[in-house]
């Protein structure tokens, strides 16, 4: 790594407002506040343990490239740094099969508001030793502590991975396909990714009448609407192409932000108590509120 975790802790310090910034691709740090950067660099890839360990400032491009060499990958979106991706908490489009990104973080050393290196989680995939701070920190936008280093769970690359398209009902495909990796629908066309044994992928595509394609289109905007997946059929009333919906998941990519309900007061209170416990002086990423951070871009 380009700096030690203790160097990073010293940079965060014990007093004064401070913000953390990776590559700035997901909104970056808080303006006009002293900015720190987490250590960068991959320290361990262990294919047989299915883990990768690196500094939180490591570019995702480096992570994906290094894992590809051992024919593995990790379910974290491309772009920016691994710490930034985890802090924002938005999953990639493989969530239908691989689950949400929050499930990949096994262990982290984070720097708390008191400037101390603090460990959460453990190095093994299976672990129920103590409370699950890792999942609390994924999507916390750096308001409870700054990721210093992380251990994430990796997955083998599939023997075959192909994109297809179809024009029929996307919900029929959701019902009939066996564990598709993604089903994306824009109101007219459906894009489907199937991973697995080449023969299985070929057979499943033929059964469902799918046509091979290069991949899905760019989403129509950077905003992510979060909807119960059983409401996505309602989108058929909308102009095709104005949205790209993750069928079976409930993320809808759009050009406009979602109007969110105000949180329940008990949930608000719980968030405030957690922030007060972890960062009583409000020095970490001041002004950022995970409850109103909006759709992560």
């Amino acid at each position: 790594m380009d700096q030690t975790i203790d160097d990073f802790a010293a940079a965060v310090g014990t007093t004064g407002l401070v913000t953390v910034e990776g590559a700035g691709t997901r909104g970056g740090g808080v303006d006009d506040v002293r900015t720190v950067a987490a250590p960068a660099g991959i320290t361990r890839i262990d294919a047989a343990e299915m883990v990768l360990e690196c500094g939180a400032g490591t570019p995702m491009a480096d992570v994906h490239a290094a894992l590809a060499e051992v024919r593995q990958t990790v379910s974290i979106p491309s772009g920016g740094t691994i710490g930034g991706a985890l802090a924002v908490g938005a999953s990639d489009i493989t969530r239908l099969a691989h689950g949400p990104m929050r499930d990949v973080l096994l262990q982290t050393h984070f720097i708390g508001a008191a400037g101390k290196v603090t460990k959460a989680g453990g190095p093994t995939v299976k672990n129920v030793s103590g409370f699950d701070l890792c999942r609390l920190f994924v999507g916390a936008h750096g308001t409870l502590g700054f990721f210093g280093d992380v251990i994430v769970r990796t997955r083998p690359l599939p023997r075959s991975s192909r994109w297809f398209s179809a024009t029929g009902d996307p919900f029929d495909l959701l019902a009939s396909l066996y564990r598709p990796v993604a089903i994306l629908w824009d109101g007219a066309t459906t894009w489907i990714r199937l991973d697995g044994d080449p023969g299985d992928v070929e057979a499943a595509a033929a059964r469902a009448g799918l046509i091979e394609t290069v991949g899905p289109p760019e989403p129509p905007g950077r905003h992510r609407w979060s909807l119960p997946p059983n409401t996505l059929a309602d989108l058929s009333a909308e102009e095709p192409g104005t949205f790209l919906a993750e069928i079976g998941v409930g993320i809808v990519h759009r050009s406009t932000p979602q109007t969110r309900r105000a949180p329940e007061s008990a949930v608000r209170r719980l968030h405030d108590r957690i922030k007060a416990e972890f960062d009583p002086a409000g020095r970490l990423n001041p002004g950022v509120d995970p409850l109103s951070a909006g759709s992560p871009g």
Binding site: P100, L136, S226, P228, G250, I251, P263, L270, P296
Partner: peptide
């Protein structure tokens, strides 16, 4: 909840 990315911290996970 049923929706994939509710606002706020992952209190479900906690």
């Amino acid at each position: 909840g049923e929706e994939p990315e509710p606002d706020g911290l992952d209190l479900r996970g906690a």
